[in-house]
Design a protein around this nucleic acid. Structure first.
Lengths: 179, 179
DNA sequence: CTTGGAAAGTCAATAAGGCTGACGTAAATT
DNA sequence: AATTTACGTCAGCCTTATTGACTTTCCAAG
């Protein structure tokens, strides 16, 4: 992969602390490196869970469902559909197998009996832990290596990169006025 | 995040200062938010190109191929397979449609006639520009809103999150003694 | 020169996981 | 009673990944 000498992306991104303006002049090449960094990082980020899931015959769709059910137990199907941004048919296929395999439990709502409140079973929680342990380990290592300032910046840029409604949902539960 | 000088991204300033230890005590919840931030941000990050691609009957696989062919013209199929981490059969299907649609040109190698050197045609370059313009706009906006220090941290953490070999490839062309 | 292996690329079949559309049921709302 | 909402399911399609089998090309050893 012979690269031309014109690849100055690295150099440009270095001098950070000296007046931010220099960095805010963003060349296409700098942005391209950011784009590729997202691509490669996201792949690394999902690699460990993918291995665990693959061994059990599941995919990323199952991971996402398990994660968000574990995060907010008792969430409804519609709620999950909104968060994941998939159709109910897609989610249902995943949910059906998870329930059949005894990882997720769907309890009929007490107030509104149309609703199904989703919970992880013991086995489900165990898988959730295995998955998130792997992912947390990688993220913790990255955080450690990069340092606290980098972590804050990382989170900040990611938040800005989300769609507005997603960001609202992401920041919502935490009452923190930003900006 | 306003840490001013001493920011980790400085030339070779690898060692994280001990002052940050308090921030490096990472709760599971903090890590979980980081995980979800990656998920939502990546979705936002791919949303714009997905729309453009969908309108033309392509998917993300086409985007990735076009991107990396545009980045390093003349690359071979095997090279692309390594970068994208897919099988040659998967790549081939995508490549076939792109060539049939006149977006990519596969020139038989002069030295080794088994190789196909891939190039974007005019039309291919135009689509590449449309796709990366959309993605760059979002990234530029995020960068602007987050500020230069955040951007440096963002890149830093992403690099740490990659698999080691991917990181080597990503940083490779830039001769920088790290560590 | 021939032959056999390795590398590069192609074709075929299969599966996961998205999607839309249509339909059905139970429960809540008007 | 009629409508809306929440959920489930069947059917069919698309994209994108997989493995297996094949052709073309190159190179090196006999």
């Amino acid at each position: 992969m012979a690269r031309g000498p014109g690849d100055g992306a690295g150099g440009g991104a270095r001098g950070v602390d000296s007046g931010g303006e220099s960095l805010l002049f963003l060349t296409d090449d700098q942005l391209r490196r950011g784009i590729e960094a997202m691509f490669f990082a996201y792949r690394g980020f999902t690699a460990d869970p993918d291995r665990i899931l693959g061994a059990r015959g599941y995919g990323r769709a199952h991971h996402r469902a398990i994660h968000f059910i574990g995060r907010s137990p008792g969430t409804t199907v519609t709620n999950l559909i909104d968060i994941l941004g998939v159709t109910k048919q897609s989610l249902n296929r995943v949910l059906r197998t998870l329930i059949a395999d005894g990882l997720v439990e769907a309890r009929i709502g007490r107030e509104d009996r149309r609703e199904r409140h989703l919970h992880l079973t013991e086995a489900g929680a165990a898988l959730e832990r295995a998955l998130s342990d792997a992912q947390r380990a990688r993220m913790r290592a990255a955080y450690r290596a990069a340092g606290p300032a980098a972590v804050a910046g990382f989170r900040r840029v990611l938040e800005e990169m989300m769609d507005t409604d997603q960001r609202a949902r992401f920041l919502g539960p935490r009452p923190e006025p930003r900006g």
